[in-house]
Amino acid sequence: MDTVSVMIEAEPYYRAVGNEIDVFSAAYRHRLPVMLKGPTGCGKTRFLEYMAWRLRRPLITVAAHEDMTAADLVGRYLLAPGQTVWHDGPLTLAARSGAICYIDEIVEARQDTTVVIHPLTDARRVLPLEKKNEVVVAHADFQLVISYNPGYQSAVKDLKESTKQRFIGIDFGYPAALIEAEIVAREGGIDRALAERLVDVGRRSRNLRGHGLEEGASTRMLIHAGRLVLAGLSVGAAAQAAIVLPLTDDVELREALTAAIAACLE
């Protein structure tokens, strides 16, 4: 389990693509829990870092996983010499200190684990610590944010209806081409023309979504490709290494994608 609690000091780079900042700010004003949906590598985590910075709240990030228990979120007694000591989990920590608690990829956790967030996400805003016999009343600044990728959820990995309905939703997609090029240029440290070409390359792979690819190249992948070019690789080689190879093992798909990418490049 990863717990990171940080006060973000410098402004993270974030390029707004829609009204997501307004929606989030409005939700935060009333401390409504928020869910960020969208494909991988499209900027969900970066957005939240930016919002934490903007709202000047510390951010506690938990990467959810299959083996996570409720105790991993809430806290547990640990052994100390001659005694047991209670340790707050990240969720409790955030609720007490008034941080933003971000549970990344929440569907990876089991549904029976995620129900512990329920009392924090309705009007009660409390977190009962059953083992410790304590009810933590959430700090006035506390907010809960979760993210997940609706693309690869299966019937088993889905949120319970009772969980879903507690959240304000913000949907992330791939930004429009020009905006995405701006982001790739800025993050990859490359010039605008190259960024535009890489975005065009990325678009080829996104066209294949549903034709054998689960998902097309993410903005993050394009940034990686840009960095490879910056380090001296040709655009074709960078696209192959950063995009085609990680995306698929299907030989025919690779061949087709490589050919389509070649068509985009000088």
Partner: peptide
């Protein structure tokens, strides 16, 4: 056939 269709879909954006 499959490779060509994939290639075309990648270029065109629809199959």
């Amino acid at each position: 056939e499959r490779r060509l269709k994939l290639f075309a879909a990648a270029i065109l954006g629809r199959a």
